[in-house]
Nucleic acid binder design. Sequence first.
DNA 1: TCTGGGGTCCTAGGACCC
DNA 2: TCTGGGGTCCTAGGACCC
Length: 425
Amino acid sequence: MPESLPARRVLLVDCDAFFVQVARLEDPEGAGKSPLLIVGGSASGRGVVTSASYETRAYGVRSAMPTAQALRLCPDATVVGVPRGSVTRRSREVRAVLEELSPVVQAASVDEFYLDLTGTERLFAPETLEDTAWRIRSEVLARTGISVSLGGGTRRVIAKLAATRAKPAGVHIVAEGTEQKFLDPLRLAELPGVGPALVESLGKKGLITVAEARAVQPEWLRRWFGPRRGEWLHRRIHGIDGSPVDPHERRKSISSERTFSEDLHRDDDLDQRLLELSTSIGSTLRKKELRTRTVTVKLRDHDFTTRQHSRTLPEPVESNQAIIDIARTLLRELRADRRVPVRLLGVGLSGLTGSSQSAQLPLFDDPGGHQETERDRNLSRVVDRLSDRFGYGTVVSGGMVGTRPDTRDRENQDHVPTSKKDEHS
DNA sequence: TCTGGGGTCCTAGGACCC
DNA sequence: TCTGGGGTCCTAGGACCC
């Protein structure tokens, strides 16, 4: 690393228990009054914890834990569903404030934002980076009602780790030159990107902390964990991270999946769900003015076996008809391989390109017969407009894309008992 | 305990081409 | 006639993050 460059000033803004905060703001009289609050669970009763209030974390409740288990640990907790729309809206509000306060902002997720303040030293003087972080925290809280924590340092990975130290509702800045002293006592499991599988392999070599791993020759790390992974690990334990804060990240994939309240085994039920998922992501694709070349269908069988098939087309497509045609073929293949009750069905689109690029004339006939016509594209846009106006379900069950109303009725009944459960908890 | 939903990135093997 | 090597694309699966 060239040491002559001026030190970067990176902050990570991380919303404290974001989904819990949003649920409380949206329902001040209900969720807002329960200290023991869990956001998550799903209508199906097969849910997991998305976010838990700090009070419930004291009982051992954690994200991704089955809601049933969380309630055993903390029986007095209130469980509310995920307020998806509000989460997106409030996330945008936080981002908008940050964009006024920092020249470079990158959303890393719905509740995390990297800021690069390099070059603002004189502008903000005599404020230190820590002062700036506190100022940003107050400003975001005052203008959005959302409490955030900030971590800061000379690199993204340092800012990220510092933010976990700052939580909740605090600030932690790692001064330039003290990075290694900050990293050494950490457990390797705390490093972003080091998950359960790598922790296990590291543990087998007797490596638990960053300091221990740093005592190992890089050559051994590469031999033990493979050249690329070993190299990555070496950089990580030394806090080496040249990745920029990039405000122009573009989406690489769009997907939607559902876990059913009860496993599905009938092909026409699955087909119906496939249709709904395909129409929904197709609409997202077109709203973002994108086209896709690769369609993926994912199945999770009743025994949690997860399988997927995908197909890449010679030319990008954007219509519901094209997506559904391929998705149906892929689902048939998956069902032919293994025909057991299905727990989850998903559809994904990748290989995304801008739809503004004029469609090329296909050079040859696609053997899959998934040629997209101008008529397909126009029809999809009509469906989008009608869905916006009258609601998504109306159009789908109206037969425009070939649905059968009787199946929809059964699906609607599915949700009755589950919404009762939500009210109860 | 019985496992959500939205993503990104990496690996490895096979096809295909030069 | 028993056999090279590199590059790119596609597919399936898995690790990881929030």
